Simulated scan of single mutants.
Amino acid sequence: MNIIFFARLFYPHIGGVEKHVMRVSEELIKAGNKVSIVTEGFKKDLAEFEVYGDIRIFRIPVFPTLEKSKKWLIWKWLLAHQQLIFEADIVHIHDVFYWFIPFLFRKRFYLTYHGYEGYKSPTLSAIGQRKVGELLASGTICVGDYMRKWYGARPNLVTYGAVDKRPVGNRKTIKATAIYVGRLSEDSGIMMYLMALKLLRDKGISIRLTVFGDGPQKSEAERYSGTNSLAVRFRGYDDTVINHYQDFELAFVSRYLAIVEAMQVKRPIFAVYNNDIKKDYLRCHPQAKSIAISENEKELADAVSDYYLNSGKWRRRVDEAHNWVKEQSWQQVVKLYRQLWKNGKETFKYQ
């Protein structure tokens, strides 16, 4: 089949949606399909066309256009390259439904919704756009079942991400260490994790933290760590971070992709939320009972303390999560996509 994916950002940009689209594309290509990605040229020096590992990448040259003006450039580019759309057997859109407006009722399409906008409850406009997209699409996938409550979604399929299978390994884990993976932002909770480290240190539990990520709160996080003499190292984004989880005792992660990656190597997971939608995002996870989910730094510090006081309970949690994640492969996710493309809105399943 000739498959085209729309995604706002893609390689070389690093993120959860980008990895999802990349791994699904790679598995489809292994099965003999042709895959193209239409995405934004998010910085100046990116080629408008590139082949990366047999994936054809078409970048819409929108940089440095302001966000509110991008849609006109995107629609103009798509209309000029509409043969890509009409020659495709499958058109599947990741989040950016509005890109497809010029082609509505002219070509079937499918949708995957990956997350939520901003740090608070979705606006009526955001809910409305998703409902229209769901109504017009031939089938939809949601990453997380919380979207039923917050967007009124009725997805045909639900997934929580996947991970490449790998042995747990015999690498030596350094005790009293933690890994943070994610954006350095309010929603991801970086400051809450740092404040919890200070509380733990004041109680006599010193944890050394390595941070993989970047974002708007980086300077604040660095200042707080320095002012409070916390043992924190900031590494920035690293697309090989999956290889580092085993080096650390604890996983400070709050997003689905990082959660399954930590489960895969049997690390205890400490996740945080600071708004109601993030709370539901975490608590709807099939393995929520295996994750320490905290609302503030005190709850988080107490959860880490409990890990050291009740090791047997935590081993059971980690083992249960690991057994579940064994079935969460990218091959399984691709099966969901194939099922959706074959059966459309008649498909109803959770993964």
Rank of each mutant, 00 (worst) to 15 (best):
S254D: 07
M195E: 15
K165Y: 11
D247R: 14
A47L: 11
I277A: 07
M147I: 13
D202Q: 09
M191V: 02
N274F: 09
K172T: 11
D276N: 12
L257K: 05
C142W: 10
H114N: 09
K131I: 12
L340C: 06
V21L: 14
I242W: 15
F105Q: 12
H322A: 15
Q331R: 10
K34H: 09
W99H: 02
M147L: 09
D202G: 02
D319Y: 12
G236N: 09
Y307L: 01
K175Y: 08
D306E: 09
S185D: 03
L194P: 06
G312H: 15
L336V: 14
F58T: 06
K218C: 06
S229R: 08
L79M: 08
L194G: 05
Y113W: 09
E117V: 11
L135V: 01
K107F: 04
R23I: 12
R267H: 04
G115P: 00
K313E: 15
R201G: 07
V96Q: 10
I90A: 03
L336F: 13
Q328I: 13
R315Y: 12
I93G: 01
H92D: 05
G213L: 05
L79A: 00
D202R: 08
G41A: 13
T140K: 04
Q129T: 07
V143I: 05
V51I: 06
K313Q: 14
D247E: 14
S25Q: 05
K131D: 02
S311A: 14
G133D: 07
W99F: 08
F100C: 10
K19W: 02
A47E: 04
V143R: 05
R223H: 11
N275H: 07
G41H: 14
W150L: 01
P122L: 12
N243Q: 14
G32T: 02
G139Q: 00
D238W: 09
